[in-house]
């Protein structure tokens, strides 16, 4: 049987990991490759690298990081952030990434999903959705530009559109839950997971191992992503997996 996946997320800026540097106690904690290896050893099922470089140089550096990670790691990884064209996707995938994650660029130009899936196959194309509850809408609204700009899209509808265009996976972040550590947004996750035919990664709000269990059971998520609780060592991938295993969740 297929397992539920635990995915640490690393924010990379100008070639360095920018979160949690001083808390990790690794020899070179700011090095994405070292951190990736650390999470691999801890049992991470997959990794997500988010390129938050502001400069063109920083983006070029990211390609080097992807090559180094691919050379060292024997688990799959996804790269997102600043991918705006088929050329950007090619660069990242040729450097050894297994999937690319599209967010704002896909909303500005949905055709990008279609092109990417056509060229590389759906399994390479993750569509990341930043979702925030909207009272007026009575549902969740999609945001772009790192959560700064509201769009016209309702989350479930956009997720379905993305899948129709060829997205092979949805990375669903709840802006309401993000950073709160009170658990994943289960209603949001369930709504999206039941509305699409591809795997959904729950993101935003992980605070402890129980939250992962809820994401899988109530939230119907196929995978769950977290950053700070792993970076700050509030829990570890290993601890979360031991707990899930005790609860009867199928994990690796």
């Amino acid at each position: 049987m297929i397992t539920k996946r635990i995915i640490p997320c690393l924010d990379v800026k100008e070639g360095r990991v920018v979160k949690g540097i001083q808390f990790l106690g690794l020899r070179d904690a700011g090095d994405p490759v070292e951190l990736a290896k650390f999470y691999d050893q801890e049992g991470a099922d997959e990794l997500v690298f988010l390129d938050i470089s502001a400069s063109h140089e920083g983006r070029k550096t990211m390609v080097d990081v992807v090559e180094q990670v691919a050379a060292q790691l024997a688990i799959p990884f996804t790269v997102g952030g600043g991918i705006n064209s088929l050329e950007d996707m090619k660069r990242i995938l040729r450097a050894g990434a297994d999937k690319v994650s599209l967010n704002t660029a896909a909303l500005l130009n949905p055709e990008l999903i279609t092109e990417g899936a056509g060229f590389f196959g759906s399994q390479c194309i993750v569509v990341a959705i930043d979702a925030k509850y909207d009272e007026e809408l009575g549902s969740w609204r999609v945001y772009t530009h790192g959560g700064r700009n509201a769009t016209e899209w309702e989350v479930v509808q956009w997720a379905q559109e993305a899948v129709k265009r060829g997205a092979g996976e949805i990375l669903l972040t709840s802006m309401d839950s993000d950073g709160e550590k009170n658990g994943f947004n289960l209603a949001l996750n369930k709504a999206v997971s039941e509305a699409v035919t591809v795997p959904v990664i729950a993101s935003g709000g992980a605070g402890n191992a129980e939250h992962f269990l809820a994401a899988f059971e109530e939230g119907k998520a196929d995978a769950a992503l977290a950053a700070s609780i792993f970076h700050y060592k509030e829990t570890s991938v290993k601890e979360v997996k031991v707990y899930l295993n005790q609860q009867g969740v199928n994990i690796r």
Partner: peptide, 11 residues
């Protein structure tokens, strides 16, 4: 219902 792609770790 079955999610397609079959994506993830399987034994």
């Amino acid at each position: 219902s079955l999610k397609v792609p079959h994506m993830g770790w399987n034994d």
